[in-house]
Structures are given as C-alpha cells and as structure tokens.
C-alpha cells in the first residue's frame, strides 16, 4: 500500500481506573482530590487510538505517529514510562491543566493550535485520532472540535475498525445503537476518528521501543510549552459524589431452585 499517513493521536492522562475519586472545589473550580498524587494512565480509549495508529503506520511505510497530549508535565512523564515501551511515536506535550472539569472547548483550541504548528505535518495526509470519549470529562466532543478547527469534515466516532484500500480510501466501522456498527467508506484523508475499543490487544512492552522513544520524549517534555485554558462563561453549580447506596439483602442459604423461582417472579414483575 502506498498510503503514507500522518496520524496525530490526541490523548490525555486520567487517574488509574481503580482509584477512589473524590471531588474538591479549589480556587480554580472543581477538581479531584489528590489528583496529582493518584497514579495515572493514558486515557483508555485514546490508548486504543494510539495502538491502532501504530498498527496503521506499521502497515503503511513512510507514515508517522504524533501523540499530542495536554496535561501536567509530571503526570505526562509518569504515564510515558508506561506507554513508551508499547509503540513508537513522537510526543508533543503541552503543559497545562487536565481533568474532567476543564472546558472541552478551551482544550480543543489548545490542541488544534499545537497540531497546526507541527513541523512536517502534511494536513492532506492527516488522520486525527483520539478516544471517542475520555475517562475524565467523558463528553466526546473535544476531538470533533479539534477536527472542525482544522477544517476536517469527515469525522467518525465510536470507531472499532479502519481498513485502508489500495486507492487510499478507507472503510470505517462506527458503533451505533443496538450493539451494531455503521459501515462507511471515506475517499481518503484527512479525517477524524474517535476510537472505541478497536480490535487490537494492548501491545507488549518492548524495551527497545521504549529506549528509542524516551530519547525524544524527555527533551520534548523539558521543552513543553505551558498553555492556559480559557473557560469563558462555564460555571459549576455543584460537584458531588453520588449518594445512592442500596440496602442489600444477602441470601446465603437459598437453594438454586428457590433463587430461580424468585428471579422468575422478579423478571416478570412490572
């Protein structure tokens, strides 16, 4: 295949999914308690996007992956220790606030500006990748906003598969309602793809990939430009943990027969 692709993956860091989260309100609005202390991971759906990007690049010689990430430098560095051994990419870090409560529109503006300024990026060959939603804000809008800002009008969300053809066109499977996929064919790049899980397993850690990546990652982190996010007119009235707590009836001694009978009644009850 002769599709040399320029894949830009937007990915943020999020607290490791197993952490206990508690909201706090500080001078800059709401946040998560101890967010800087909690272990972080690359946003899971964006990580799928990164692995898919690496897979595409491996199959299309002359291609390249950039990983554009807005977040605190310290967190990015920490997450890179876990991610950089998996696939090859060039990190484009932007030192700024991250978390669920920052404004997606402001985040998108910063990301779009950074992508537009990438040296050597051919916008005609651009595939803008990211997660279809994040594990922080979970709004699923940032990537579209970046795409619009870059003038890309072929956008796909909830993507599980991309298949390139000889002529440079590609087929995309997007998740739609009812556990189905919508299949579309796009004539070619540029396009925006917000990834769901995809079909690739998480790549294994390859020490050589890590070593090569880290040579460019550390200097990039040192030079990361600070970005301030504008959040005009967004007000949080409240942020709180859910109070829903059920009174659980625990049945330890019921026979399977009795449980089944009770469940039949429960399932049937309106």
């Amino acid at each position: 295949m002769g599709n040399a692709l320029h894949v830009v993956v937007c990915a943020g860091t999020v607290p490791d999914p197993l952490q206990t989260l508690e909201p706090i309100t500080g001078p800059n609005g709401p946040g998560v308690k101890n967010e800087m202390m909690l272990p972080a991971v690359l946003d899971p759906w964006a990580a799928s996007a990164l692995y898919e990007a690496a897979n595409l690049v491996a199959r299309n010689p002359g291609s390249k992956v950039w990983l554009v990430s807005l977040g605190s430098k310290a967190k990015l560095q920490q997450v890179m220790m876990a991610v950089a051994q998996k696939v090859s990419f060039e990190l484009v870090p932007i030192d700024g606030p991250i978390g669920g409560f920052t404004d997606a529109h402001a985040t998108a503006a910063v990301l779009a500006e950074a992508i537009a300024a990438l040296p050597g990026l051919n916008r005609e060959r651009l595939l803008l990748f990211g997660g279809w939603e994040s594990a922080t804000r979970g709004a699923g809008v940032t990537l579209q906003l970046v795409g619009e800002r870059l003038g890309i009008i072929d956008q796909f969300q909830g993507v599980d598969q991309i298949e390139f053809r000889e002529d440079g066109s590609f087929e995309v499977l997007e998740r739609v309602e009812g556990g189905k996929h919508q299949a579309s064919v796009c004539m070619g790049t540029p396009a925006v793809l917000g990834w769901a899980t995809g079909n690739l397993a998480e790549p294994r850690n390859n020490p050589q990939t890590g070593m090569a990546n880290m040579r460019t990652i550390m200097p990039a982190l040192q030079k990361a430009k600070p970005a301030a996010l504008q959040a005009d007119g967004l007000h949080y009235i409240s942020v709180a943990l859910p109070k829903q707590h059920r009174t659980t009836r625990i049945e330890k001694d019921m026979t399977p027969d009795a449980i089944a009978r009770e469940l039949v009644e429960w399932i049937g009850a309106e």
């Binding site: 989260l21 007119g233 009235i237």
Partner: peptide
C-alpha cells in the same frame, strides 16, 4: 438553565451552567 451530567465515568455528578 442548569445542566446535570456525570464526570469521571459516572463517578462524580456535576451541575453546570454556561453564559455562551
């Protein structure tokens, strides 16, 4: 208008408003 939504994958509930 006050909009309610979940943050951090249904772990924190927030209510917000916007001027824009």
């Amino acid at each position: 208008v006050e909009a309610t939504r979940w943050f951090y994958r249904q772990r924190i509930e927030g209510i917000l408003s916007r001027e824009a």
